[in-house]
Every structure is written in structure tokens, then in C-alpha cells.
């Protein structure tokens, strides 16, 4: 006997599996995110390199650069999550068949795995190329997890909002700014604390609060944004 919760979870899982199946066959987001991350990593390492930044400057600058690489890589690939559905006209079938909140969570789960995979690949390479020593690796993992979740949730929410609009690219940038700015400030602060070996302070709980807020806002707003 299926309960409403299990059918909802099955729907979200079906969306997640469908997203990855389509992604593995087109590799649009994987190629976009990977190429952007690789290019920016090379540019940063060639210009700053391990010898180009002093240790004192590095702790201030490198966490910012790391999050900028993650942000712009995500911004290059994730807005397609919903736009693709509208452009290929599959959105009509989805609107008629899927529970909006389950659809949002399935898409969010897909974005999340993509962002986590990106962070897991980029961060060690970035640290090695920039000779960045992290005093508190556990806190860095926490910053990447909480910041990555916020990045995925915020991007998914904005992608849903812009999907039916004209000038999608411009609108994504305009809407992402207020949504993602607090996240980036907090994520950079927690990452800097991790590099220096300081305590997490209030930034990590604030980051988790941001994640919860964006998730709740997404679940509440998405049905209104998605349906007429």
C-alpha cells in the first residue's frame, strides 16, 4: 500500500532519475559546468599560481575565488533545468502529470548532485594548484555542503521563475543577484574560517538558515510559478 508521502517521494525520484538519464545522453550541463570550471581554474592558477599570492593574501582572496568559480560554473549550466522543458515543449506533459512540489524537489536533487560533484572535483584541484592549506577540512566540507546546497536551491528556484519569461539569460542574472548574494558572502566567510582554522562562528548557522529559507520559499512559490 502506497502512502501519499511514498508516492510523492517516488515522483521526485522519477524526476531525478529522468534528469540524469537525459543529462548522460546529452551531457549539456556536465560539459558546460566542466569546461567553465576547468577554464577558470586554469586562468586563476596561471595568473595567481602558488607563488603569485602570499599566504596572508591567499587566505583572504582564495576562498572568494573558489566560490566565484563554483558560482559561475553553476550559473552557466543550471538555468537550463526548467528552460529546457519550456523550449522543448515537454513542460505541458510535466504540468499535466507531475505534482509541482515533487517536480521541484526532483529537479533540486539533480542540481544538488551536479553542484556537489562540481565542488568535489574543483576544490581539491584548486587547493593543490593554489597551494592552499586548509586548517580545518571538516569545516571546509561543511561550507561546501551548505553553500553548495544553497547554490543549487537558489539556482533551481530562479531557473523555475525565469523559465516562462522572455530574455531568460538577463533575468537569471538579475534575479540571482539578490537571491545568491547573501549565500556567497556567508559561504566565503565559513570557507575563510576553515582555511584559517578558526571556529565556524555564526556564519555556518546563518548559511543553514539560508538553505532552509530558500527550500521553503521554493516549495511554496514553485506551484504558483509553474502553473497558470
Amino acid at each position: 500500500m502506497w502512502t501519499p508521502a511514498s508516492t510523492w517521494a517516488a515522483e521526485a525520484l522519477a524526476v531525478f532519475v529522468k534528469e540524469w538519464r537525459c543529462e548522460f545522453r546529452t551531457r549539456y550541463a556536465l560539459n558546460t559546468l566542466g569546461l567553465f570550471a576547468f577554464t577558470t581554474l586554469v586562468v586563476v592558477s596561471v595568473n595567481l599560481g602558488p607563488l603569485g599570492v602570499s599566504t596572508a593574501q591567499g587566505t583572504a582572496v582564495l576562498p572568494v575565488l573558489l566560490w566565484l568559480i563554483l558560482l559561475f560554473s553553476v550559473a552557466a549550466g543550471l538555468p537550463r533545468t526548467f528552460v529546457q522543458e519550456e523550449e522543448s515543449q515537454t513542460a505541458v506533459a510535466l504540468r499535466l502529470a507531475a505534482t509541482p512540489s515533487a517536480l521541484f524537489c526532483g529537479k533540486l536533487l539533480y542540481s544538488l548532485t551536479l553542484v556537489f560533484a562540481l565542488a568535489a572535483l574543483v576544490t581539491p584541484v584548486f587547493a593543490a594548484m593554489m597551494n592552499l592549506t586548509v586548517e580545518s577540512p571538516g569545516l571546509l566540507a561543511g561550507a561546501l555542503a551548505a553553500g553548495g546546497y544553497g547554490l543549487a536551491a537558489g539556482s533551481t528556484l530562479v531557473a523555475a521563475i525565469i523559465a516562462q519569461a522572455r530574455s531568460k539569460g538577463t533575468l537569471f542574472a538579475v534575479l540571482s543577484f539578490p537571491v545568491l548574494l547573501p549565500l556567497l558572502l556567508l559561504a566565503v566567510e565559513v570557507t575563510r574560517n576553515a582555511v584559517l582554522g578558526d571556529a565556524a562562528g555564526v556564519a555556518l548557522p546563518q548559511l543553514l538558515l539560508y538553505d532552509a529559507s530558500v527550500t521553503i520559499a521554493g516549495l511554496m512559490l514553485f506551484p504558483a510559478v509553474w502553473n497558470p
Partner: peptide
């Protein structure tokens, strides 16, 4: 149940 000319499916599947 809905059938319409602009109803599309996933070409990659």
C-alpha cells in the same frame, strides 16, 4: 487525458 499538437516528449529517451 490530453492530446495536442504542441505536446512533446523527451527526445533523448
Amino acid at each position: 487525458g490530453f492530446v495536442a499538437p504542441d505536446l512533446a516528449f523527451y527526445g533523448e529517451l
